[in-house]
Design a protein around this nucleic acid. Structure first.
Length: 273
DNA sequence: AAATGAACCTGTTTGC
DNA sequence: TGCAAACAGGTTCATT
């Protein structure tokens, strides 16, 4: 579910709700997610104060006062909430972290592709688990020349390359699809046939789209909810994602789609070459 | 090294 | 109507 804009909104909301709080209890209801929740029970989290919450790619990191952190990933269907005990536990809420103000950090994930792990930090200040991630798409490290260079050594579809977390982290199916439409490039274009100019345009477009999506509170297609339960409003602004079979917003041509890297990729056969 | 496909899950939608 | 297949925002592993 969450791509970068959604993870960013969750991180900001979690920061507001968790910074300064202490963890007083850990409860696990179902441990088998992408990785097991079990280690959290013996990680010595009780009594730890939460310093803040930050994002890297599609991961959020809850910083603790002992230098460690909780590494969160939301998979396809992960939702976090901060609520008190008066709300009954939902069916797929697998983890409760009880806080010193009576509230509960709740992790819900029906499809169980998400993760919550205790992490130690590397020399770069980020969890060791994140060492292989590429640059942040909104940072200066992600620029047209860099993308062009990465594309030069790949023959596969450009969409698969920009969704590769080792190339650039946090660009998922929605925003890759949208940005390729914005720059008029078909998702199945061989990466090594991208021009430098197109790479520059893609970087500019994806930064603008990600920033707008963050501003709109993310995209809710079906499951995504912000920490306060609200839906992301960016879905209303999507130009091409999910519009397979409908007329193209720009030219009226029927939108088509292909499967690339196992993911549906909508495109306009007239606007995108 | 890079490309491809399958696997991990449940819930909802689509098609016969 | 009913049931099975297909599909969904992601990541990782095995195989070619």
């Amino acid at each position: 579910m969450p791509e970068l804009p959604e993870a960013e909104n969750i991180a900001r909301a979690l920061h507001r709700g968790l910074a300064g709080r202490s963890i007083v209890g850990v409860e696990i209801f179902f441990a088998k997610l992408r990785t097991s929740l079990e280690p959290l029970l013996t990680a010595g989290l009780e009594g730890r104060k939460i310093l803040g919450v930050r994002r890297r790619g599609r991961y959020d990191v809850v910083d603790l006062d002992d230098g460690r952190g909780l590494l969160l990933h939301f998979g396809m269907s992960g939702v976090v909430r901060i609520e008190d005990d008066t709300v009954p536990r939902r069916r797929h809420e697998h983890l409760f972290l009880r806080l010193d103000n009576g509230m509960i950090f709740r992790f819900e994930d029906p499809r169980r592709f998400g993760m919550v792990e205790c992490a130690t930090m590397g020399a770069d200040g980020w969890p060791l688990q994140l060492a292989d991630l590429g640059p942040e798409p909104l940072s200066e490290d992600f620029h047209g020349d860099y993308l062009f260079q990465q594309c030069q050594r790949r023959r596969g579809p450009v969409k698969v390359v920009v969704m590769d977390n080792a190339v650039v982290t946090g660009i998922g199916n929605i925003y890759a699809t949208e940005a390729l439409f914005a720059v008029g490039v078909r998702p199945n274009r061989p990466a090594n046939e991208m021009t430098r100019r197109e790479c520059v345009a893609f970087v500019k477009a994806v930064k603008q789209i990600l920033a707008a999506a963050i501003e709109a509170g993310g995209s809710t297609i079906a499951d995504f909810r912000n920490v306060d339960g609200s839906e992301g409003r960016f879905a209303q602004q999507l130009q091409i994602y999910g519009r397979d079979g409908a007329p193209c917003i720009k030219c009226g041509e029927t939108v088509e789609s292909v499967k690339l890297g196992g993911r549906t990729s909508a495109y306009c056969p007239k606007c995108q070459r």
